[in-house]
Design a protein around this nucleic acid. Structure first.
Lengths: 277, 277
DNA sequence: TGCCATCTGTGCGTTATCGCACATAGCGTT
DNA sequence: AACGCTATGTGCGATAACGCACAGATGGCA
């Protein structure tokens, strides 16, 4: 399969060793165009939705950090030292079982935050947060985040709404895992990722997608082959380009639409303009 | 299979028509011994964990309502008029798909409440809340519940902790749906139900269990047959008695233990004394 | 230019679960 | 005591996904 992808430069180190259990993946990164698109806290839609005075209070306390692919923001059971507000990165919440098998619980980008357990009170969760698409995030020490949430009820209510959206996605994942085929789930997964990216191209091997979906790599290969035959995607060695998004949506199970609709309802400020393939 | 179950009296009407999509189930109820065990708000462990002054404020606003098997407390998309604090009933959060297939997202008893979406801000969810084991619950109008939560930060924090426990269970359900066999999942499901009942006997047909697990009824029949052969359970026509709980735990997947441990961590006041089979 | 790690494609037997059909059994009602 | 509804048991072919093995393709790098 000869597909042209524009060349990219490696600008961030990877930390994938032992992080993606099955794979030995060492990918490259799309250059982050810092000069053209300055990364501000407002790139995160939750931060942007806060009242201006709260934004101003938070700004000096936050720190912009790069999130290379495969970086683990926290491990199951870890006490969370910071919460992260992605600006252009994508993070998966992944559950890893005793035998090493895994499954994605939810995925989030600049519409969300990593670390709801901080204000939920548990301080840790049973899942792992792992960077699925490299980029940046603003982070805030948990302690200060908690103070702000307790001080500004508007911030609390925003976080709670986001948490409900997260719950919706988790529920739907459970249902999808039960009832839908790998083909359909791949479509759902691609759409969820696509919604959190500025382009229609994702940097992700089939091996990693398989880890996220909790299925065999070969299963993803087969499903991706079908999507290619249908003219929906093109791909090559860790890059996937969606060329027909409407058809992708059509081939997906209802789960994508349900989650999208509910997320848009709960977080109307985060309604995304979809990049047409 | 000749198993003796103590006779029971029907004391509550059922509302199962069209509520459990696949089944035409019309079961009886175990008599609720009101006189021996007065039902007080403190039977619900969340209510019991509140500061006394808050309990006293809430008490007159709450109403004790019977929850017959199969009753739908809310439907997907419904605006929640009340939140429910079960005292001795069990409620499942169930997702019902477009084609009628379903899957349980989580289950809760007197350690929880139905209606987290009220203080999360969404006012509705994409799931259905349905009574899985008849009993009672105290309910509180959503409006008043919200006021109390906003007024008493202690109450808010308690609810948030419970919500995190709920999230943990949802996540684990997603993983379990992906990776574990029907046999294992049945064990998990029985244990989760058992923990929320005062006895080691549950009133539930295999058909309904299949609905909860999102699998075929025949699959549950087979799995239950194996458990019986192993001497773990006895059952007959809508009643299941667990006779060897340790073995049941041993045959379950890790998911039960993970959820239990995390729930106990988050809600230490709700640690349950397990009825030995 | 050629090497080589790694990503993707494919085949094949095995297994779990499904969907359907129908048989058997338990229990309340007449 | 017989009936009938409902719950449970069982068999069977179809299917989806699995685990494994290995072939082929790609692209970075020496």
């Amino acid at each position: 399969m000869a597909i042209m992808f524009h060349s990219v430069k490696t600008i961030l180190p990877t930390t994938t060793d032992k992080l993606f259990p099955r794979g030995g993946y060492a990918p490259q990164f799309i250059e982050c165009e810092m000069s053209e698109l300055p990364i501000t806290p407002q790139k995160n839609l939750l931060l942007a939705a806060l009242p201006l005075d709260v934004q101003n209070r938070l700004q000096p306390k936050m720190e912009l950090v790069p999130l290379p692919l495969g970086k683990v923001l926290y491990e199951s059971g870890d006490t969370l030292s910071h919460v992260y507000f992605p600006t252009d990165s994508i993070v998966s919440l992944l559950y890893v079982m005793e035998n090493g098998a895994s499954a994605e619980i939810s995925v989030l980008g600049n519409e969300g935050l990593i670390g709801v357990a901080v204000f939920m009170g548990g301080e840790s969760t049973t899942s792992r947060a792992i960077v699925q698409s490299a980029g940046y995030a603003y982070r805030l020490p948990s302690r200060q985040f908690k103070d702000e949430v307790n001080r500004h009820s508007e911030m609390l209510h925003l976080m709670l709404r986001y948490t409900q959206a997260l719950i919706t996605q988790m529920s739907q994942t459970a249902v999808c895992n039960r009832h839908h085929s790998i083909d359909q789930q791949l479509c759902r997964w691609l759409l969820l990722s696509l919604d959190r990216l500025p382009t229609n191209e994702l940097v992700m091997t089939q091996e990693l997608i398989a880890n996220m979906l909790g299925v065999r790599r070969e299963g993803v290969t087969e499903a991706a082959g079908k999507l290619h035959k249908s003219g929906v995607i093109e791909y090559s060695r860790g890059r996937i380009r969606v060329t027909n998004r409407p058809k992708l949506e059509q081939m997906s199970c209802e789960c994508y639409a349900v989650v999208k609709k509910e997320t848009d309802r709960l977080l109307p400020f985060a309604v995304q303009v979809i990049a047409l393939g």
